[in-house]
Amino acid sequence: MTEPASFSTDTSGTPFRRVLIGTDFSAAADHALAVARLRFPDALRRLVHVTDARVTAAPDLMGGVTPAALDPALLHTLEEEGSQRLRILAAPDEEAELLVGDPVTGVLDAAEHWGADLIVVGTHSKGALEHFFLGSSAEKLVARSPVPVLTVRLPGGTR
Rank of each mutant, 00 (worst) to 15 (best):
P72M: 06
L89R: 13
D42L: 05
T151H: 04
V120I: 14
H49N: 08
V142M: 06
V152E: 00
P41A: 03
L150D: 00
E112M: 13
G101F: 02
A5T: 10
L61E: 07
V50Q: 00
A96R: 12
R17Q: 15
E95L: 11
A28I: 05
T105I: 13
R45C: 10
E79V: 09
R18A: 10
K126R: 13
R17I: 14
V152F: 01
T158V: 07
P59L: 03
E95Y: 11
E94V: 04
T151M: 10
H76T: 06
L118G: 00
A110K: 00
V35D: 13
S83I: 04
S8L: 10
L108R: 01
H76F: 12
A34R: 15
T11H: 06
S83C: 04
T23G: 01
D30N: 14
A111G: 09
F16S: 03
R144W: 04
G82P: 03
R18M: 15
E112R: 08
V48Q: 05
L44G: 14
L74E: 01
G106W: 01
A116H: 06
P4A: 07
S136M: 07
A90S: 02
D60F: 03
L150K: 03
S83P: 02
T51Q: 06
L78V: 01
S26Y: 15
E81W: 14
K126N: 11
D117R: 00
V55K: 12
P4F: 11
F25C: 11
A90Q: 02
L150S: 02
G127H: 01
R39C: 14
L129G: 08
F40Q: 09
K126Q: 15
A53T: 10
K140W: 08
G101H: 00
A111E: 04
I119W: 12
D60N: 05
